[in-house]
């Protein structure tokens, strides 16, 4: 039997697109930039060069989605995050390839990082209906009052995705994104500009997980365009600067924090660029983008 004539069949390339409001738009600029193999420098794909305008559109989408997502039951959010884990598991091979190319790893080394990303989604899926039980409190006030503190999501969170460290391109992204949405926030993510492909593909997983459009918005492009737009946007409530690497300039932690101060955004400062994203996350990120609301009511006959 002769060999199949595979050489005659061309692979179908994927056009990588942004993920905004549950849809997959190209950048409004119509511009793309080249994404290359971390190890060989070979061309991999053209990624959309998301702009300030794309970022503002994403913030609008995130704001619009906030009411529904923050009002969804914690159980429902957990179901959806678990569904996202299922979808990611189903596309494991694709992500192994993308992570390997993005981080300059062999497929063998990339595979456990993808598995860890799946597991991390499962970990956060399980947290959704427990976080209020560890972050809330019944307060024994000295008077005839019922007094209860409960955590609520902060709002729209701008996330600068990790740009370095073990597993940053997918596991790192999931590790910063999942806690934000598990607690009911919505997110606009500035993807790692040098390794955006796993992140752009993550939109396809989220889009098929019953996650309402706009809860997660993924923008590839220059961090110095996207991050300052998030930091200065009045409708963004908080920033996770996990992946900030610039020492100075508009995309540095200092400048972003200064911009964020204008509307008193909550800011989580950068992670070390060599952070090992496989380490157990603990509850730090889960408890960061929460506001404590305390409700009083008199007791009486």
């Amino acid at each position: 039997m002769s060999e199949p004539t595979t050489a005659l069949r061309l692979d179908v390339y994927k056009t990588y697109k942004l993920f905004v409001g549950g849809k997959f738009p190209r950048s409004e600029s119509g511009r793309v930039y080249e994404v290359t193999d971390r190890k060989t420098g070979e061309w991999l794909a053209n990624a959309p060069q998301g702009t300030r305008k794309d970022t503002r559109d994403a913030v609008s989408a995130a704001r619009k989605a906030f009411g529904g997502w923050s009002g969804a039951t914690a159980y429902n959010r957990g179901q959806i995050l678990y569904r996202a884990a299922e979808m990611l598991q189903g596309r494991r091979d694709q992500y192994v390839a993308e992570v390997a190319l993005s981080e300059g790893l062999t497929a063998k080394k990339a595979a456990p990082l993808v598995d860890a990303a799946v597991d991390r989604l499962v970990w956060y899926a399980g947290w959704t209906d427990k976080v209020a039980q560890i972050a809330g409190n019944a307060n024994p006030v000295a008077g005839p009052y019922f007094n209860l503190s409960t955590p609520e999501p902060t709002g729209v969170v701008g996330v600068v995705a990790p740009q370095g460290g073990t597993g940053f391109s997918l596991l790192g992204l999931v590790s910063v994104l999942a806690p934000v949405i598990a607690t009911g926030n919505t997110a606009v993510v500035a993807l790692a500009p040098g390794a955006p492909l796993p992140g752009l593909s993550l939109g396809e997983v989220l889009a098929t997980s019953d996650l309402p459009g706009g809860v997660v918005n993924l923008i590839s492009g220059r961090t110095e365009d996207i991050a300052p737009t998030l930091a200065s946007h009045a409708d963004v409530n908080a920033l996770d600067l996990a992946g900030v690497v610039a020492e100075e300039g508009p995309a540095s932690a200092r400048d972003l924090e200064v911009a964020a101060a204008e509307t008193l955004k909550r800011v989580l400062r950068p992670e070390s660029a060599s952070h090992d994203w496989t380490t157990a996350p603990g509850t730090d990120r889960l408890l960061t983008f929460l506001e404590t609301k305390t409700v009083w009511h008199p007791m009486g006959m």
Binding site: G143, S149, L264, T294, V295, P298
Partner: peptide, 26 residues
């Protein structure tokens, strides 16, 4: 809002967390 008083107002207690949302601080 960080503190909601229902059928009462301006009650404070050391056991009860106090603080704001949005531009009321963190």
């Amino acid at each position: 809002a960080g503190v909601v008083w229902s059928n009462t107002f301006n009650k404070f207690d050391p056991t009860s967390p106090f603080g704001g949302y949005k531009e009321s601080g963190y």
